[in-house]
């Protein structure tokens, strides 16, 4: 397998960074709980792309296997998080996260 050039690596890293930034901005600006959750997932993917890019750059499988774990854990966590969202929705009949702001000082 031929080596990846530094320029190619930078493109992948840039894609990861953009995905992470999109997710982060979404997390901070959205009010819909499902959208917030999706934003965190997008941040996850940004990180995962970084890991795969470095794995390919260094020609070893550690990063890739790590990502497989990451994806499976994220899937489990997604099921829990969505279940929580459903529960929260049932309580307040809304998905607006601002309905859950009693814990203020």
């Amino acid at each position: 397998m031929e080596l990846m050039t530094n320029a190619a690596l930078y493109q992948y890293l840039a894609l990861g960074a953009v995905l992470f930034a999109i997710g982060l901005v979404g997390f901070m600006s959205r009010r819909n709980m499902i959208m917030i959750f999706l934003s965190t997932e997008i941040m996850f993917q940004g990180v995962a792309i970084n890991l795969i890019a470095f794995a390919r750059y260094h020609l070893n499988a550690d990063g890739q296997s790590f990502v497989i774990f990451l994806l499976s854990v994220a899937a489990a966590e997604a099921s829990l998080a969505l279940a929580l969202v459903v529960l929260l929705y049932r309580r307040r009949q809304t998905l607006n996260i601002d309905a859950w702001s009693e814990m203020q000082g």
Binding site: M28, I36, M103
Partner: peptide, 18 residues
């Protein structure tokens, strides 16, 4: 004095974290 930072709103916590 630091009580106002605890707004109860998730996104502000997120901003604070970032």
């Amino acid at each position: 004095s630091i009580k106002p930072t605890e707004s109860g709103r998730l996104r502000y916590y997120g901003i604070g974290m970032v």
